[in-house]
Amino acid sequence: MSEHLLEVKDLAVSFSSYAGKIRAVRGVSFHLDAGETLAIVGESGCGKTVTVKALMKLYGNSAAFIEEGSSILFKNEEVVTMDRKQLSKLRGEGIGMIFQDPMTSLNPTLTVGYQIAEGIRFHDKSVSKEEAYKRAAELLALVGIPSPEERIKQYPHQLSGGMRQRVMIAIAIACDADIIICDEPTTALDVTIQAQVLELLNELKEKTNKAFILVTHDLGIVFDFADRIQVMYAGVILERGTKYELFDEPHHPYTWALLNSVPSKQSQRKGTLYSIQGTPPDLMMDIKGCPFADRCVYCMPICKERMPEETPLSETHSVCCWLEHSMAPKVKAPAAGGEE
């Protein structure tokens, strides 16, 4: 039994490709409570999107599968073993999702009103068509689209990028899901529009008691939106904690690098940015030790041999790194802002 809204244990997801098995997610555990926001941060290919798609068993027609031994408990129900009927109830009523590119996730041949109403009526058959459309208009108003009565009759291509993302948000919240997953919700948007969409998400967070999962590579938007953050790399979680803990005392060299490789207001102009050598590991390979070892400036021989265990630093903060071990040299995090 789990007291959490969502509890994920040892989740592993793989893809079979013609060249072999790609192990995209390699044993990830986390939980989520109502009303809180969890951010999963990492670079492309680190398995963050695969992880959240696994929560709904949403793979489309790709050759992905959840490995044995994984467990996803949503309201104490096991998602991994759910059948098609239970899953379609879960998707929408339990978990809603906002995708990176609203243009490809909206059907271009249907009006946005129809697409919202369809979702409402799919999950609650008792709602009449008129009522569903009325609700759709209300939802559009809620997500800040002006003159919603007219907008519901329009097609996705008639809306701008920011508007489309608002429509996606409306669809995600239409069935009153408990968890809203935002997969790179603002990556395709311009900065000023990004701020508007994030603000809307923040408003929704405050108004409702929904839980949010934000998947992003952009540390800039994480701290303003999430409560807890977990840093993923090559299919594993390297560090997790509240946003304050990760900002004030990051413990993993990868987190240091992520935080410092973005120039901030204080950083020396034209100075050398903190950068990570090399490229992420090939997920087709077996990784014996820490996946970050090859690129880590603090790498020790042990790092390449064995995966470090998760070390709790506080109630909410934990890290997977050999530097935490009593025999390891004491290393200080590099100062933010880069070096000259």
């Binding site: 900065v191 000023t192 994030l198 701290f223 303003d224 946003k243 304050y244 935080l259």
Partner: peptide
């Protein structure tokens, strides 16, 4: 609207609001 990675200072709240789209 430049996102600032800083949990103590909300760039989102302090930003200059712009209405509408380009």
């Amino acid at each position: 609207a430049i996102p600032e990675p800083d949990p103590y200072h909300s760039w989102l709240k302090s930003r200059v609001h712009l209405q509408g789209e380009i």
